[in-house]
């Protein structure tokens, strides 16, 4: 029961270390997505511990899983996608402006313009 959560925890750490440590800005965006996905998995997994059936009411449906985390994650996923789209658009512009995707190079080239 705990092993899934430890895997999710490791997944979150992988994503987070990419955000902090990766030099490439596209990899940072990937890291953000991995971190986001880990949290979504965590909510859905833990919310499904209390039931067996999908939360769609009907004949013979008795033990549904908790639908609240699913509804919350629906919102969180869409927000995550929107933020990713914006981040990638910014990355494209930064690449066009500086000719690099490495965060240090971008920062250095933008500073030296002045």
């Amino acid at each position: 029961m705990v092993i899934e959560r430890i895997l999710i925890f490791l997944l979150a750490l992988v994503g987070f270390s990419a955000i902090v440590g990766a030099k490439n800005i596209i990899k940072k965006v990937f890291g953000l997505n991995i971190l986001n996905a880990a949290v979504v998995l965590l909510y859905i997994l833990e919310g499904s511990r209390i039931g067996e059936q999908a939360p769609i009411l009907g004949e013979g449906v008795t033990t549904i899983v908790d639908p609240v985390p699913q509804a919350l994650m629906l919102t969180a996923i869409v927000i995550g996608v929107c933020v990713t789209a914006l981040a990638l658009a910014l990355a494209v512009r930064l690449y066009k402006a500086t000719g690099s995707l490495e965060i240090d190079t971008i920062s250095e080239r933008l500073r030296s313009e002045h």
Partner: peptide, 28 residues
Amino acid sequence: SWPVVSRDYLYENALSDTGAVNTVSSIY
């Protein structure tokens, strides 16, 4: 342990409150 209060409430009332069989969509 994961709380069951929202799940139980929705199981009882979601259909009559919102008319939706899919409880996820009755929430969001």
